[in-house]
């Protein structure tokens, strides 16, 4: 699962930084039918989390009510230099992850 995650490369200690996440995923609702009328099984990213150097700072439970290619924008405080680790999983058990470094000064 491809994802685009944007965070600032650098920040001052204590600064609130914006995190933007866009994951490529159909977020299949489970209410649609295929060409021969069979129900297409639900397959959505049901859980997403963001850890800042190992500490969870944001988590989301998603459902079919979230648009395809889910976009999430949230905030976190730049505490120290380290990594933001993102993980998510869909109904079929396919996991995705991404890691972005951040340099914190001051």
């Amino acid at each position: 699962m491809a994802a685009r995650i944007q965070i600032p490369r650098q920040a001052k200690r204590g600064e609130v930084i914006e995190v933007r996440v866009l994951i490529q995923h159909p977020m299949e609702t489970g209410f649609r039918h295929d060409d021969v009328g069979r129900l297409i099984k639900r397959n959505v990213i049901n859980a997403f989390s963001c850890r800042y150097s190992g500490v969870e700072v944001f988590r989301a439970d998603l459902s079919s009510g979230i648009a395809a290619n889910p976009y999430l924008q949230f905030y976190t405080v730049a505490e120290a230099s380290g990594n933001l680790e993102f993980t998510w999983i869909d109904d079929e058990g396919v996991q995705g992850s991404e890691r972005q470094p951040i340099a914190v000064s001051g």
Binding site: V16, F58, Y75
Partner: peptide
């Protein structure tokens, strides 16, 4: 959502480390 087949569209969990209580996303209605 009061009209979607699944009413609970999403739940977000934050904490003091968020710094700012704001979330942006895109939903299906």
């Amino acid at each position: 959502s009061d009209r979607n087949p699944v009413p609970n569209m999403a739940s977000f969990y934050l904490g003091p480390r968020a710094g700012k209580a704001e979330i942006n996303s895109r939903v299906r209605l």
